[in-house]
Structure formats: structure tokens, C-alpha cells
Design a binder for these strands. Structure first.
Length: 483
RNA sequence: GGCCCUAUCGUCUAGUGGUCUAGGACGUCGGGUUCUCAUCCCGAAAAUCGUGGGUUCGACUCCCACUAGGGUCACCA
């Protein structure tokens, strides 16, 4: 039977309320700074779990000693906390299914690897890396499928005993059955089926005693009672190996959900070269976490009422994996910018200032009530918090009058006179003062921008001058006239 | 290349056989409000629903093929 439509295949087990405890997880590898794609996964997991009294777990998959990065785990927590996608169980929080760091579970994997050997579902492999490389080269040059040649698949007990006795390094490989269809149901794509002859005898336990992803993920997801395995589409093709493992252990297969992967403008997997993959980039650029989450929520999913802007709480209420479509969406910074600007604009002045203080610690040195007065002016003009600097330069830095462009001294004198006459130093009155000069001398607003801020345009000038104050404003005029 | 997934405006998407001469959002362009720039409001252009076959009284919606794009082929995840 072919089930290509998501509509007919979705809603299988686990969808009936109360029937199965919802437990989801993200399983990042501490190999670098957290990836925006990890947050994308976390968002869906988190929303699904929170919307159904489920549990959201973070498991650290640190089984690759070579690629291990020291601070990476903390960076993951930083990112999670920044976005507010707080987990229920993790290495830092503990929980009933710990430890949650795979490097602390080595004995468990080794035990299950042994069980697999005993059952005949796996076997010891003594091939050297060099030999494996040769095999790969050979198959590649013959344009054949590059996979293990099963050299050690049928060693006799004596050969194995001898190799073990002589301390030969060994791995444990999955014994993939021949001539079988391996099928499973992906919630977003329906039934997917692979020919087992094309599935490699994957290494499950490395020669250093660490498991590979494939063993660890299956063992842990089962032991941690993960009900829905949610991961990126790039894992689809290794899922048959996992199915084989579940079957070999006699374990129930969890619901499998392979989410779309975020793409570059050229449709390849989102990468540093073309886009921005690190969470830290977005943070430093001054994006608001809730704006990013809102944007991410729209990747592959849409609000039932067509809403574009909605808070996380609403996403939690509405979200279901069955509504996610499997097309890999292109990450569009332009739309994120719009959304971020929208969120900034909707932020209360006090709150916005607080965010800016976090973003620009140096602002703590400035007068806070002064800064607060800037908020209404800047909030409709910032795509990101970083835009604050350029927007407000004229409040902090005196314009450079040394390069005078030959401005009309008469107009300057006129302006001086007009502004000095302003009784109450408020935007309206200041504007009237400027306006009279404009009418009389046929100059327009940009002239005054240049004069008072050094820029062609910017924040509303009368309001700016009000905040800058009468004295500083007139002082700038003096300097302009002297130049 | 093998295998697997996917296919509606430039981008994110709505669309579950007739309500679609395909709706919304971003972006783009034009206009209005206005003291510059934004915000806000209004409007426009923009998808022959990848192509070709079926099924059906009827297909964006179901089936097949093709094409294109993507993913994956490690003792990395």
C-alpha cells in the first residue's frame, strides 16, 4: 500500500490523548556553537510537549571524542535559556532517565551491543581503517555502492577468539539481513521503505568503546521512553538501521518525525557560507528571541487562522506535527527582519531599554531617563537592536563642523534667532521655529538634519533637538557658524 | 552515481475533487498620512499550481512517468 499523502497517514498511535505519555527530546552534539536548526527542532518539540503535558528532554550526544568542544554544552543551555525553551530533563537538570550525557552511559551501550552479538544481530569486525579505506576506494573506482564488504561478517568462533586473544582492535557491526524490505511510517511523509541490501552493516560500537550515533540513539530513545523521535530530514536514510535495531531488541518503535531542514537561498542545507547558522550570530546582531521563534514557527507550519504574528503560548496551543509540511524552507532574513522590527515596535519602552542595556552594556553609563526618552523615537526604526547605534549617534556625538560645505551664514543666523526665541523647549515649538526659517529661506528639512546631526536624515528632528536640549542645540549652531 | 525525500507567486505559505478566473504574509513597485527617515493606511505587479499522461461529469487537490531540487551513502552526528 502506498501512503504518500500525509493526510491519510498521520494520526496513528500516540495521537489519542492519554494513551501514550508524550516525551520528546533534542539531542545536540557538543561539537560547536548551537545551530539555529537545533532551535528550530527544539521549538517544535517544546511546543508539542507543552501543549500535551509532555516532557521535553535534552540529551547530549557526545560520543565523538575527536569533535568534542569544551564549552559547547553550556552554549546549548545558554541558547535554550535565551529562547525560553526550557527543558524538563537534561544533564544540568537531571531526571529519572539519566544520565543524559551519552559519554556517561558507555556501559549501557556496551551491554546492549553484547546482547546484539549474542542474538546474532551484530558481529565483531576486526578490519583496520586502512583496509576499510581501500575497500571504499575500490568500490568507488568501480562505480559501485560504497559500503562495507562484510569481510568479518562470517568469521568463525575460533577466528574471533583468536583475534580477541591477540588484542586486535574491534568494532561491533550491525548484521543487516539480506533481501528484505525495511519499512516505517514517517508522520510527515507516510510509509517509507528501503531495500535491506542497500543498507550498510553499520558500525554500532567503535573500537574506543564508544557507541556510534545509531546505537546510542536507539538505546537511549528507548530507555528514556521517548515517544516521538523528532529530527531533521537528513536522518531519513539512516532510519532503516534504527528500525533493524528496534526489531532486534524487540522494542516498540516510537513515532518517527523527520522535519524539513532549513535551506540557503540556493536551496542547499543552511550553511555558514550563505546564511547564518549560529544562534550567537542572531543574538549579537540584535534579534529578539521571540521574533526568531515566531519566524521559525512559520517555517513549514502556518497558523490555522493565517496569523503571522503570534506568541509562543499561542503556538503551543495550535501546533501539531501533522500540520508541518515536508518542504525544506529557505531561511529568509528579510522576513525575519520585518518580524524583528515588528516585535521591537511592540515592546514597551522600559522593556526595550532593558534589552538595549543587555545588548550594549556601555549604555549603563548614560543617564537612564534620557535613554528612555529615545525609545519612542527609535522603536519604529530598528530592524535589530544593533541599529540603535547609528540611529542615535547625534545624541552622543557632536557633529563635525570642520568640513564646512559653505552653508548659508545668513540662514544660520536666522535659525539661531528663531530657535533662541523658542520659549518652551518642546518639539512643537522647535518645529515652528525651524518652519519659519524654512518658509522664509526656501530650505527644507534635510538642511537642518545636516546642520544639527551631520546626517542627511534620521530620527524626527524637533523631538531629537528637544531631547538634546536647548543649550547643546544652540552650541551646535554656534559651532556651525564659526566653521 | 545508488537509495530516499520533495515540488502552488522571488521567498514563507493557504488550499484535503466542484466555493480557485488560486487567498494571505515578506520583499518589490505606486499612492496617501507626514517636519527627513520610519511607522501606519491604500493599491499594483507577481504562481498557465514543475512537465506529460491517466482516473473522474469535474483535478492545484487522487494515480503513474518524467524532470528538477534536496538529503544521504564514515569507527561524524
Amino acid at each position: 500500500m502506498v501512503l504518500s499523502s500525509k493526510k491519510t497517514t498521520v494520526r496513528t498511535e500516540g495521537e489519542v490523548p492519554g494513551r501514550k505519555k508524550i516525551r520528546v527530546r533534542i539531542a545536540p552534539s557538543p561539537t560547536g556553537y548551537p545551530h539555529i536548526g537545533t532551535i528550530y527542532q527544539a521549538l517544535f518539540d517544546y511546543a508539542y510537549a507543552r501543549g500535551r503535558s509532555g516532557t521535553f528532554v535534552i540529551r547530549i550526544e557526545d560520543t565523538d571524542q575527536a569533535r568534542f568542544v569544551m564549552d559547547a554544552e553550556d552554549e546549548i543551555y545558554n541558547a535554550i535559556d535565551w529562547f525560553g525553551l526550557t527543558e524538563d530533563e537534561s544533564p544540568r537538570k537531571g531526571g529519572p532517565s539519566g544520565p543524559y550525557r551519552q559519554s556517561e552511559r558507555l556501559a549501557i551501550y556496551q551491554k546492549y551491543a553484547r546482547e546484539l552479538i549474542e542474538k546474532g544481530s551484530a558481529y565483531y569486525c576486526f578490519c583496520s581503517k586502512e583496509r576499510l579505506e581501500e575497500v571504499r576506494q575500490r568500490l568507488a573506482s568501480e562505480k559501485k555502492q560504497v559500503m562495507y564488504d562484510k569481510h568479518c561478517r562470517n568469521l568463525t568462533d575460533e577466528q574471533i577468539a583468536a583475534n580477541v586473544a591477540s588484542n586486535m582492535p574491534r568494532t561491533v557491526r550491525l548484521r543487516v539481513p539480506e533481501n528484505r524490505q525495511i519499512s516505517f511510517t514517517d508522520w510527515l511523509r507516510g510509509e517509507i521503505s528501503f531495500n535491506s541490501n542497500l543498507v550498510d552493516d553499520q558500525v554500532l560500537l567503535k573500537s574506543d568503546g564508544f557507541p556510534t550515533y545509531h546505537l546510542a540513539v536507539v538505546v537511549d530513545d528507548h530507555l528514556m521512553e521517548i515517544s516521538h523521535v523528532v529530527r531533521g530530514e537528513e536522518w531519513l536514510s539512516s532510519t532503516p538501521k534504527h528500525i533493524l535495531l528496534y526489531q532486534a531488541f524487540g522494542w516498540e518503535i516510537p513515532s518517527l518525525i523527520h522535519t524539513p531542514i532549513l535551506r540557503n537561498p540556493d536551496k542547499s542545507k543552511l550553511s555558514k557560507r550563505q546564511g547564518h547558522t549560529n544562534v550567537s550570530w542572531y543574538r549579537e546582531a540584535g534579534y529578539l528571541p521571540e521574533a526568531i521563534l515566531n519566524y521559525l514557527a512559520l517555517m513549514g507550519w502556518s497558523h490555522p487562522e493565517g496569523k503571522e504574528i503570534f506568541p509562543l503560548s499561542e503556538f503551543i496551543e495550535q501546533f501539531d506535527f501533522k500540520d508541518v509540511n515536508p518542504i525544506g524552507p529557505i531561511f529568509d532574513l528579510a522576513k525575519l527582519n520585518w518580524m524583528n522590527q515588528h516585535y521591537i515596535q511592540e515592546t514597551r519602552d522600559e522593556e526595550l531599554l532593558e534589552r538595549l542595556l543587555v545588548h550594549f552594556p556601555d549604555l549603563h553609563d548614560k543617564d537612564q531617563s534620557f535613554l528612555l526618552r529615545l525609545m519612542p523615537l527609535v522603536k519604529t526604526r530598528m530592524d535589530t537592536l544593533s541599529d540603535f547605534t547609528a540611529l542615535t549617534r547625534h545624541f552622543f556625538v557632536e557633529p563635525d563642523y570642520s568640513v564646512e560645505d559653505g552653508g548659508d551664514k545668513k540662514i544660520l543666523a536666522e535659525t539661531q534667532k528663531s530657535l533662541t526665541a523658542v520659549k518652551k523647549w518642546q518639539a512643537d515649538a522647535i518645529f515652528l521655529g525651524l518652519k519659519s526659517v524654512m518658509q522664509e529661506h526656501k530650505v527644507r528639512m534635510p538642511f537642518f538634519y545636516k546642520l544639527f546631526t551631520g546626517a542627511e536624515r534620521g530620527l524626527p528632528l524637533p523631538q531629537s533637538l528637544e531631547i538634546i536640549g536647548r543649550d547643546r542645540t544652540l552650541a551646535r549652531l554656534d559651532r556651525a557658524r564659526a566653521a
